[in-house]
Amino acid sequence: MQAPLDPVDLAKLSLKDAVLDVVEFRGETTIVVDPQRIVEVCQFFRDTEGLEYIFLSDITAVDYFPREPRFALCYHLYSMVYTRRLRIKVYLPGDNPRLPSVTSVWKSADWEEREAYDMMGIVFEGHPSLRRILMPSDWEGHPQRKDYPLGYEQVQFSFNFDEVNRLKPYAKE
């Protein structure tokens, strides 16, 4: 078995300007990369001997509203050979966030990307079937965004019982 190699050094060496930043926090390595080259980066981490991050655990979309670049995507990779994790992060603009899909690299990226699209409205180019996954297909907006309201309804207490009762749309037979 090939000895484990350092993902940061190797990425800087091979991917050069695709690597924008490296963050170490609480023992976790985050490599910030160029969103347009994400497919190349993912293929590199999956196929290079000594890294072999063959398992995509999760894709998380984060909304840093009102900061710009507003959106971030975290790809959590796992190497079953060397039992270690790596986070690849890309930042996307708030206006029309899009980037290439990594479904060609990992099949499991399919539904993770659909979830990111449904919840955050991030568009993945080249995704086989990018449609809503959790919300109804005719839903408006992307609920996980920070500027989307939580949808707070007035809570019924004893002091406003009648008022809420009057407004509540009770079902008919």
């Binding site: 609920p143 949808g151 707070y152 509540k168 749309p169 009770y170 079902a171």
Partner: peptide, 15 residues
Amino acid sequence: FNNYAIVQGVDEIVP
């Protein structure tokens, strides 16, 4: 769960 996804009481749908 007082949020966007949950119907606030099933009595809005069925008696």
